[in-house]
Amino acid sequence: MKKVAIILSVFFLATAFTTVAVWKNDKAHSQLAFTVTHLGVSDVSGTFNDFDVEVKSSKPDFRDASFTLSAKTASIDTRIEMRDNHLKSADFFDAAKYPEIAFKSTGIKSLGKNKYKLSGDLTLKGITKPVVLDLVYRGIIENPMSKKPTAGFQLSGIIKRSDFALGTGFPAPMISDEVVIKADGEFAQ
């Protein structure tokens, strides 16, 4: 009984000094973008303009970070209203039926100073698939306006739209199956 009490005491002391910081994206200084190739000759890019990201970490270098993202599908913006409306339709994202895109990290692996592989589950159009993305931690500064710590991250990677049944009526020669993802963000506690 005494050993159990000692073990529990050590555990509680160790966890009492572990603080998990919660960081949320600054919407004015964050972007969630994508690029596809059209007809094999030009790239077309867009963004999701309404999204939230939360980062939790107890380590100052974020090597134990977990990320969650939620984006409003209807906030897609490619600068062409007709194309945006088509992308919101059942041909692609079916925004009425699937109003949110979600990502939840499942692991993070250090590749050296400030570079990581971020694993997680991505849900698009009701389909969840594991993905691995590149993450760069860009450091922390004190924001001169808010006087709060501000962290920066850049995320990039490639997913296949066919994995998520996006645009199944549009073959790869018309719209590339590979979709390049790039997200940049500032985060405050």
Rank of each mutant, 00 (worst) to 15 (best):
F187L: 07
D84M: 05
S9F: 13
K125P: 01
S156D: 11
K117R: 11
K148Y: 11
L13V: 05
V132W: 03
K117T: 12
T73I: 03
G107E: 02
R161G: 03
T19P: 05
H29M: 05
G126F: 00
A33Y: 09
V136F: 04
T15Q: 12
S30V: 03
A90D: 14
D77W: 08
F67G: 08
A151P: 02
A5C: 11
V41K: 01
L155W: 00
S162E: 14
V41N: 06
K56W: 00
V136H: 12
A151G: 03
E142P: 09
D43G: 12
E142C: 11
V55N: 02
S156C: 09
A90N: 10
K2A: 13
W23R: 01
V132S: 14
N49C: 05
T168K: 15
A102C: 12
K97T: 13
F93E: 06
G167H: 02
L166K: 10
T123K: 08
L133Q: 03
K117D: 14
V132F: 02
K129L: 07
K72Q: 13
E100P: 01
L155E: 03
I76L: 04
F67W: 00
A90C: 06
D43F: 05
L166H: 05
I181P: 00
V4L: 15
P60M: 14
F12T: 11
K24D: 11
F11E: 04
V22G: 04
Y98D: 09
S146A: 12
F48C: 05
S70P: 09
F12L: 15
D84L: 06
F153L: 12
T168Y: 06
I141L: 12
Q154A: 14
I141M: 09
N49I: 02
